[in-house]
Design a protein around this nucleic acid. Sequence first.
DNA 1: GAGTTATGTAAGTATATACTTACATTATAC
DNA 2: GTATAATGTAAGTATATACTTACATAACTC
Lengths: 196, 196
Amino acid sequence: MPRPDRTEERRDELLPVVAEAFARLGYRRATTATLAARCGVRENVLYRLWPDKKAMFLASIRHVYDRAERIWEERAALGPEGSTASRLLEYESRHLGEFGLYRILFTGLSETEDPEIRAHLRDTYRKFQRWIKRRIEAHDRLRGGRPGPEAELIAWAMVGLGTVANVGREIDLFPARVRARLIADAGRLLLEGGAP
Amino acid sequence: MPRPDRTEERRDELLPVVAEAFARLGYRRATTATLAARCGVRENVLYRLWPDKKAMFLASIRHVYDRAERIWEERAALGPEGSTASRLLEYESRHLGEFGLYRILFTGLSETEDPEIRAHLRDTYRKFQRWIKRRIEAHDRLRGGRPGPEAELIAWAMVGLGTVANVGREIDLFPARVRARLIADAGRLLLEGGAP
DNA sequence: GAGTTATGTAAGTATATACTTACATTATAC
DNA sequence: GTATAATGTAAGTATATACTTACATAACTC
C-alpha cells in the first residue's frame, strides 16, 4: 500500500506563506520561483497542490479574508453587540490591516481583466462590506436610528476609509497618529451620522 | 544644418496615449510592446523619449494628475467659492474617475517597493488630498465652522470615498445609482459633519 | 521486507519582456 | 543640392517567468 495522501495538510501549511508573499509583493512580482523559495520547496511542489499560479492567488485571497474575519469575530465577541462597531473601529485604528487583506485585494485590482480574479475580488469585497454593514445595523438597533445615509452606504464608506488608511501606511502618506485619528474620528462620524 | 528637435512635442503627443495604457492595464501588464503599439510607433521611439519604462510611468502619473486637477479647477471656477466642495461632490458622483487618476495610482501601489515610484505616488496622493482640503476649508469659512474632525482628516476620508467608489465601478461592486449616492450622501455627511 | 505511491530534487522548455543596435529615410539650414 | 542630425524600421539580446519532465528517495500497508 502506498503512503497516505497529505496533499490537503500540505496546502494548509503552505497557503499562509503563499498568501503572505502575494500580499507583500503583489500578483505579478510574486513569481512562482519566489513563492516556492519562501515555502522552502521547489516550484513543482506548489504545482502539485494547485493547478496554476492563479489558483494559488485565489486561494490566498480566500485565506486572508477568512483569517481577518475570524479575528474580527473574536474581537466582536469581547463586548456587547451594540458597541461592536465602535470597538472594531478602535481596534482597527491600532492594528490596521495587519492581516494583509487590503494589500492582497489591492494587488488583485491590477488583474481585473481576468474574469475569475475579478469575480473573486467582487465576492470578497462584498462579503467584507456585508460584514461591516451588519455591525452598523446592530449598532443602530441599540443606539436608536442613525441620521444620514443608510448602513449600506456607510459600510462602503468604511471600506474606503480602511483602504485609504492602508494606502497611507503603505507609502507613508501621514504619521501613525493621523492614521489612527482618521479611522477613529472619521469612522465615528460615519457611524454616528453626526449625532453627539 | 540638421532638422529641428521635436522631442518635446513628441512626448506631449504620446504621453496621453501611454498614460491611458498604464491606467487601463496597470504597470506590469502595460508592456513596452503594447505601449508602442498603442502609440503607433516602435519601441525604440519611446526609448528615445524616456530613458526607461519607469520614467514613462512616472510621467504618466504626473500627466493624469495634472489633467484631473485642471478639470476640477474649471468646475470649481463655475460657481461661488464656498459651494465648490459640494458642487465637486455632485460632479464626481456623475463623472467618477473619468481621468483615470484612481486607476493609475492603484496600479502603482503594486510597485511600492521601488523607491522612486513610491515617492511619486506619495507626492501625488498628498497633492490630491491638499487640493480637497483647501476646498473643504473654503467651504467651512463660508458656512461657519464644521463640527467633527478637522479638514485634514475629512480630506483623506474623501480620498477613500473616491477610491472605494472607483474600485466599485471597476469590478461592479454595486450599481451606478448606489455609487452616485455613495459619493453624494456619504460625501455630504463628511463635508457637513452631520449638521443639517 | 516488498510493493506502491507520495514527495523531493534538478534540470529543462517555450515564451514574454525590457531594452539595444544597425541601418535606411527624412526634413531642415545653408 | 548637400551636409547633418532627427526620425522611422526591423531585427536582435539577455533575462525572467510560468510551467513541465525525469528521476531518485521516502514512507506507508500488508
